[in-house]
């Protein structure tokens, strides 16, 4: 795991002579190893958008991973797994129970989980097929198909600290993502809100005022791993890519 290398780096800084530290410092430049789920029926273009900026120059090395590979245990080769847009139930179905268990084990043992839109539905504790990685329900799930449009999100103070030290508001693409609110599953910790929706999409019968104020980006832990969920799509052409890249980097580090 990436955090293991960080631990080694810290140990090296303390115990290794200064002349050798430059070698170990190179460890920090090791890219974060990112697995992005995709499969033929996913209907998602999310991995393509992500691979455009999850590149070594930005500190990442990304690989598309199939549900079969996850079931076979291939996540052990990565620091973080991204479940991108598409369909949460579709991803769960493609992963099958073994794949879902493999993702949970990976995160529990210190791997990072980044859920984007469908991947956030998948991470929640709301559905039969959910991974139960984060203590979150989906508000107004009857109107999940509320539409696609740019919206404004407002970072909370914690969100600014974690994701951005420049802006606190972002214009971001939204596409039927979950409106996240707290759940109270006793075996999961709560979550921290990093951003809320400041504007909304209310098409296809979705009531107005249902979306504003609900949680757009949240983070928590599952076992030793970090979990971060983005309801909107920061990975699309217009970004903000810094937001999602920072989130992925954060998730890749163990607690």
């Amino acid at each position: 795991m990436h955090s293991v290398s960080n631990f080694l780096l810290l140990a090296a800084c303390i115990f290794i002579p200064a002349s050798l530290q430059s070698v170990v410092m190179a460890e920090e430049t090791m890219p974060v190893r990112v697995a992005i789920l995709d499969f033929p029926a996913s209907g998602s273009q999310g991995y393509r958008n992500l691979q455009r900026f999850l590149i070594p120059k930005n500190g990442f090395e990304s690989t598309v991973i199939s549900p079969e590979a996850i079931r076979k245990g291939d996540l052990k080769n990565f620091d973080v797994v991204i479940m991108p847009g598409g369909s949460g139930s579709g991803q769960a179905k493609a992963l099958k129970p073994e794949g879902r268990a493999a993702v949970r084990t990976f995160v529990k043992n210190g791997g990072g989980y980044v859920g984007i839109c469908a991947g956030a539905y998948l991470a929640s504790s709301h559905y039969e097929w959910s991974l139960d990685l984060i203590n979150a329900r989906v508000w107004d799930r009857s109107h999940w198909n509320r539409g696609k449009s740019n919206v404004t999100i407002q970072l909370t103070p914690v969100g600014s600290e974690v994701l951005s030290n420049t802006n606190s508001k972002y214009n971001i693409y939204y596409s039927n993502g979950p409106l996240l609110v707290p759940d109270n599953q006793p075996d999961l910790p709560g979550y921290e809100v990093l951003a809320t929706f400041e504007s909304e999409v209310a098409n296809n019968g979705a009531p107005t005022e249902a979306m504003i104020g609900t949680h757009a980006i949240i983070r928590s832990k599952f076992g030793s791993g970090r979990v971060i969920c983005f309801s909107p799509h920061a990975e699309t052409k217009n970004g903000p890519h810094s937001l999602i890249a920072t989130g992925i980097y954060w998730a890749a580090n163990q607690e």
Partner: peptide, 29 residues
């Protein structure tokens, strides 16, 4: 009623969040 129900959902008493180590860096793309 919708507003009130949403507010109740947002502020629903949940277990406390975990504590996190300070953020190491943000990435600017």
């Amino acid at each position: 009623e919708l507003r009130e129900m949403k507010q109740a959902a947002i502020t629903f008493p949940a277990p406390p969040p975990p504590t996190f180590a300070p953020v190491k860096k943000t990435i600017v793309i």
